[in-house]
Simulated assay, not measured.
Amino acid sequence: MLTTDHFQALTVDEREDRLLVRMNRPEVRNAIDAAMVSELHEVCHYLERTPKIMILTGCETNGRGIFASGANIAQLRERRREDALLGVNSQIFDRIHKLPMPVIAAIDGYALGGGAELAYAADFRLGTPYIKMGQPETGLGIIAAAGALWRLKELVGEPVALEILMAGRILNAEEALELRLVTEIHDPAELLDAAHALADRVGKQDPLAVRITKRVFSAPPSAHPHIDELAQAILFESEAKFDRMQAFLDRKKK
């Protein structure tokens, strides 16, 4: 099991096939700082060696949900060129995106700046009617350098992505759902149940097939169809393939 006794920014509930990871810094609206990044790296290190689904969510502050409000602006103001070149947020978000099993972001309230980029790194995004998602970076004299500049146009299309990135557009729940940036909207009290229900559906699939699907899906166009054929060749030899197909055939006989 993952040891989290020393965690300060995250709480973790581990189950047989999943981790529920909650960002828990309500006093700063889940601003992403060095401690949170370090703990997320520890979670990734564990999940890379013990593949499980991750549900990533936020907490409540003053009775309202908050996913992550981005970086601490006071700290961000003092950062210099060498800090940017370290790619602190971009590296952890990329690591989360590349985890072996799917990542589900359960979003309530604000997901802005780095908080939005963290949500983009997930494989699935569920939200509540109160979500606000966007990139305020250009208004602060910087760019969204932790994934939004290349992930967002794939998720919502180039025209909307440019409006978010250059004109400060903030998406509400209705807009995010229409654009399929989130795929489901639930009341806050039902958000985690919905995330677990999605995890249950994923969990019913063959884990190896899910892992390989995730890896092949993210391959560049030039890798297809060869990578698909090689991946299928691996799965055609797996015991799960024979067992699951035989079970399907047995059910048809009844």
Rank of each mutant, 00 (worst) to 15 (best):
S69I: 13
A71H: 00
A71S: 09
Q75L: 06
Q75V: 15
L76T: 01
R77Q: 11
R77V: 15
R77T: 15
E78M: 15
R79C: 09
R81N: 14
E82L: 14
A84I: 13
L85F: 06
L85Y: 12
L86E: 15
L86V: 12
G87A: 10
G87M: 09
V88H: 05
N89D: 13
I92F: 07
F93I: 03
I96G: 00
I96S: 05
K98W: 05
L99K: 11
P100A: 08
P100R: 04
V103H: 09
V103W: 04
I104P: 10
I104F: 00
I107L: 02
I107M: 08
D108N: 12
D108G: 13
G109T: 00
G109V: 00
G109Q: 01
L112H: 02
L112I: 10
G114C: 01
G114F: 03
G114L: 09
G114S: 08
G115Y: 00
A116F: 10
E117G: 12
E117A: 08
A119L: 12
A121K: 10
A122Y: 10
A122G: 14
R125N: 08
L126T: 11
G127Y: 07
T128N: 03
T128A: 03
T128Y: 00
Y130Q: 15
I131Y: 04
M133S: 03
Q135S: 13
G141F: 04
I142Y: 03
I142Q: 05
I142H: 12
A144D: 11
A145V: 15
A145D: 14
G147N: 08
G147S: 04
A148E: 01
A148H: 09
L149H: 06
L149M: 15
L149I: 15
W150V: 10
W150Y: 08
R151V: 09
K153I: 09
L155T: 14
L155G: 10
L155M: 12
V156G: 02
V156M: 06
G157K: 07
G157P: 01
P159L: 04
V160D: 04
V160R: 06
A161M: 02
L165N: 01
L165W: 01
A167I: 05
A167Q: 13
G168C: 07
R169M: 10
L171I: 06
L171H: 12
N172S: 04
E174H: 15
E174F: 02
E174D: 14
E175I: 09
A176P: 01
E178W: 05
L179Q: 00
R180N: 09
L181G: 03
L181F: 07
V182A: 12
T183E: 15
T183V: 08
E184R: 11
I185C: 07
H186S: 06
A189T: 10
E190R: 09
L191V: 05
L191F: 06
L191Q: 07
L191N: 07
D193F: 06
D193T: 14
A194K: 10
A194G: 15
A194R: 00
A195E: 02
A199H: 05
A199D: 04
